[in-house]
Design a protein around this nucleic acid. Structure first.
Lengths: 205, 205
DNA sequence: ACTATTACCGACCAAGTGGTCGGTCTTAGT
DNA sequence: ACTAAGACCGACCACTTGGTCGGTAATAGT
């Protein structure tokens, strides 16, 4: 039991550092040795805990990426209050995190999707699953919004979801180099504009 | 002179195949030998024409990516007709190209930006330059739209430009695996909705 | 016919790559 | 005190990478 704890701790350390480097330098461009060097561990340690580099990465997805995605982009919009506000605030928070150069897992995800697309089907499947969860939750949030009278009943929930995800992932790419803070600000203003356009028209004058 | 023609032809062949493979498998994950194998050429031929793999890639950007970007995403919105229609049609066309699995250079660009971000400043500079050109042209198209009375004078041109670019690059990431055609359709519907919300209100009743 | 340049070949190199494996400490259980 | 398993070490392997370099076939200019 105590043993198992040590095992878990080491694996966790490897995964955290692994994600950091994979994100910074890309999966294919980061060697197992790079990660090991950072942690002062040896090849032996790595292959004692993980089957392969690929297996290692998949465990990172399941253990770190999935959970963070939930915390940042899924849970925050699960409430029953004004749906569009929830979404707006959620995006605002996530982008603010990104501005401070911290890991923003929505972007981590789209980043990896771009890297593995057409190159590793097994990993792509895992990444797409997360995307699907995000999409499903957005769709049901929007439907809830319609039901609760916050969103125009005529809008296409699926469409809005796909659109929001697109916009979010796109702005993150645009934020990587040029004026992230300014771009975030402009982006949020336009998102609000768009979301306003799908609000329920209470003024059914 | 005749000689020079042959040189150009070979370089062109290398660049076209190079872009194809870099796009499909990523820059770091594509070896010079991969490209050479495809063309039945030797290492010697490659390094006779290009200084390095990096130099080769930069020439691809300048010769192929820049020009295609112009043709697909910049020139089409340079007219003086109804600006928002121009933008809509331009996006529609570019995404349709993407659905048929052909190279869509807007996405090629964002793809490479993701790959080189934080890894190769020199290349990033070139990529960002193209992005900048796109942005500038979008901004001026929108300002033209305002001037011509098609777009609400109160909207933030820069904001709209950044937002449109974001949305476009994002949807392309979402289209890489799941239901590209359906997603394109939904996306376009929402983009139209958004663009409608920034139209000039002719009904100033 | 001779020569010089262009365009290309392919063996070679040093530096990595993911992955293996025999060995060695430390610790827990008896 | 002895043993067995867990956690880790690091030398090693086959292979790939970007890049070099001495050569050669074809061609253009004279």
């Amino acid at each position: 039991m105590e043993k198992n704890l040590k095992r878990m701790a080491t694996m966790q350390r490897m995964q955290v550092t692994g994600l950091e480097l994979f994100y910074k330098k890309g999966y294919y461009n980061t060697s197992v040795d790079d990660i090991l060097k950072e942690l002062n561990l040896s090849k032996g340690a790595f292959y004692y805990h993980f089957e392969s580099k690929e297996d290692f990465f998949i465990q990172i997805i399941e253990n770190l990426v999935v959970r963070k995605m939930y915390g940042m982009l899924i849970e925050p919009i699960e409430g029953h209050e004004h749906t569009l506000d929830l979404i707006t605030n959620c995006f605002e928070d996530a982008l603010e995190t990104a501005v401070h150069n911290e890991l923003d897992f929505g972007f981590v995800l789209s980043n990896f999707i771009n890297e593995f697309n057409g190159r590793n089907d097994k990993i792509m499947k895992h990444l797409n699953d997360i995307l699907k969860v995000w999409e499903v939750n957005l769709v049901s949030a929007i439907q809830r919004g319609k039901f609760n009278g916050f969103i125009d009943r005529h809008v296409d929930s699926e469409g809005v979801a796909v659109y929001l995800m697109s916009a979010y992932m796109g702005i993150r790419t645009l934020m990587v180099e040029t004026a992230p803070s300014a771009r975030k600000y402009r982006f949020m203003a336009q998102i609000r504009q768009y979301l306003k356009s799908i609000e329920a028209k209470t003024t059914t004058v």
